[in-house]
Design a protein around this nucleic acid. Sequence first.
DNA 1: GGATAAACGAGACGGTACGTCCCGTCTTGAG
DNA 2: CTCAAGACGGGACGTACCGTCTCGTTTATCC
Lengths: 212, 212, 212, 212
Amino acid sequence: MTAQVTPQQETRTSVGARRSEATEAAVLEAFATLLDEVGYAAITMEAVAKQARAGKATLYRWWPTKAHIALSLISKAKVEIAPPAGVSLRDDLIDYLSRMIGLWRGDAGLPVGVLVRHCYAEAWSDPELAEALQAERRERWTMLNDILQAAMARGELPTGTDLARAKDFVMSWPIYLLMTDRLPSPEEIARMVDDTLGGLRSGSSRHPSRDT
Amino acid sequence: MTAQVTPQQETRTSVGARRSEATEAAVLEAFATLLDEVGYAAITMEAVAKQARAGKATLYRWWPTKAHIALSLISKAKVEIAPPAGVSLRDDLIDYLSRMIGLWRGDAGLPVGVLVRHCYAEAWSDPELAEALQAERRERWTMLNDILQAAMARGELPTGTDLARAKDFVMSWPIYLLMTDRLPSPEEIARMVDDTLGGLRSGSSRHPSRDT
Amino acid sequence: MTAQVTPQQETRTSVGARRSEATEAAVLEAFATLLDEVGYAAITMEAVAKQARAGKATLYRWWPTKAHIALSLISKAKVEIAPPAGVSLRDDLIDYLSRMIGLWRGDAGLPVGVLVRHCYAEAWSDPELAEALQAERRERWTMLNDILQAAMARGELPTGTDLARAKDFVMSWPIYLLMTDRLPSPEEIARMVDDTLGGLRSGSSRHPSRDT
Amino acid sequence: MTAQVTPQQETRTSVGARRSEATEAAVLEAFATLLDEVGYAAITMEAVAKQARAGKATLYRWWPTKAHIALSLISKAKVEIAPPAGVSLRDDLIDYLSRMIGLWRGDAGLPVGVLVRHCYAEAWSDPELAEALQAERRERWTMLNDILQAAMARGELPTGTDLARAKDFVMSWPIYLLMTDRLPSPEEIARMVDDTLGGLRSGSSRHPSRDT
DNA sequence: GGATAAACGAGACGGTACGTCCCGTCTTGAG
DNA sequence: CTCAAGACGGGACGTACCGTCTCGTTTATCC
């Protein structure tokens, strides 16, 4: 394949017995393009194949459903989150959640939150996907674990705090908002963290909020 | 409406130019049957029509998508939740959430939680459904509003607490658990309420929990 | 792809699967079976697909309407007509029309006449079918052209006779009878040819006939 | 509705409302309108009812299929044909066929030929319609019978000519042209009559004609 | 004048078939 | 051996009409 001018899409050729990385990249890019153009629900394997100039059989060989393609995109995107400063629990959580919610919102160019929630939904009827999703989640939340452990070491949290349970508690509100399509603004994130740290009785819930 | 009880397979006759309540009931029952037999994802409008002995056009006349049928079932099921005792905020919340989570789990015969989470998911790409779902949610959470308001009156919550925000905070963990397919047991509900009331720093997160 | 100077623009490096002849045969056979079992009007594309164990999309890929399937069957059936003897015009016409009417009646196992008349009817509102039907008719009547030309050469017809018009004249009575569901017996065919050759004033119309 | 033997209630003679002539007229007019707007094939009972502002049940009460409505329209239209002059067979036939073909073409405002040929087609699978159509045809061709009989009386046709057969012969070419959507112009009608009277060997087929 | 009953408009009903779309698999020929 | 292309059997989609029915109203006779 020499230089010829293919203005839109460069034709990829088969290389024989090896998996084509170019094809994988083309598929992920095609998925992202379609996500932007028609929305997750309207994406079909057929359209992804056509957009990526890939054969349908090739798609199915590497990804059993479109949710798995979405998960591949999520896995690629998660590296964008930077490590925390480690000063105070409140600051660390605000920083961590701000980055994650920014990623969800699409600050990195891809609305990862949309992919995440659809993966959750499809996992309800696909145990294999549920397992893959859990693995992804466990890996992604390693940093949250570090944050909480550091806070416990600094005495900001009682020793013996159940970290797994605390992680759930911290993530439950953001994920709830993701699921109800109301991702919070930066100020709302701060208040959310205050509520999480102090609980209902602390009084931080007195700020006005949008109605549900 | 006199006595006669023909409980099964009553032949519905064509009713003419007004909406047939018998058909509506047959459709909802058929949906519930199929939900039990094949699961939400595998339900098709075609199968619902067949199971209900109804025409597809009749289905589409009253429910634009299967999620709307699910929402009808949810609305019918919500009356099962009884009013709270009004003694203490903690008890009221535990009671309220226990009832709601029991309803979700299927204690009333129908796994309402499955319907709810799929409605959330389909609302992501269906604004009309999103609105209907929000109306349903607002109505269902009236009682939660009453609980919080009573607690505020009793002095258990700071005066001026943003109730809409507080409702979100209370519901976020249960809904997060619904979305991740891990509905809590009664004891877990109590601890969940303690965390919600006290926040992370209160120390109630020290109990062990399942890993995510 | 090395040689870039391909004058005929042969950039197709992948061709895809080819049309299945087995499926085409199965569809035509299914159509014939249903024609026999339920009649033309009651045939549906759905039933043809099911009978042929083919997908509906496959049917629509190759035949836009059921009339096109009928036309395919007609085209396959027409090869049954043998060439004429070439002795006298009257004998040739009787032979030709007898064969054609026999084909129409179903002597070859398939009631081609039923297919033909329905194709005519559907061509009234389908220009594309009308064109295909005309092409078929032109090809089928080649032999009639030969018969008339031979008769002209033998002096049985005036030189300069408009053959296209003569063909119409010869075929008009048989087709009229086909359209009114009264295909003639062999004896009636002979008298029909006599009328056609001699016209009303020749007196051959004096034989009794069925009422219309 | 006269006295029938009903043992219980002898004289219950309330007759209720009568058939509405306004409705019948509205239906026929609606059918003609739709014929002009969308063509015969696309006309549905539903659309006729709506266009006529009539209930579907009313339509079905008086006309079992749309072909029967078409037949009603044909019957109303046929009165337009005037009686023949009775001078010569050729002139009478030309006059008669010209009027009929003009009616078919739509000179009276309604393309009767379109209705006629669709009635023929639907009669292939509707014996009741076939019978009604034959009655209509018999009545309409009374005048053709008169023409032939007068010609026989004048000696233009051999005595003993089978009139029913002769009618078929005369009508076969016009109807064939109607069925192939090629209604003839006035000049073509004259040549058609000449062919019919003289037959193929008379030589009148030497004029050029459109190809089939 | 009141009762009665047929016919009416409107349109919901249980159905069937439509033609389209996509699924996941299989076939073909190129590289 | 893998690839792009795309035909295949299958099945659900949402729509359009079918012919039947019920609803409540409007006639038109008859008592």
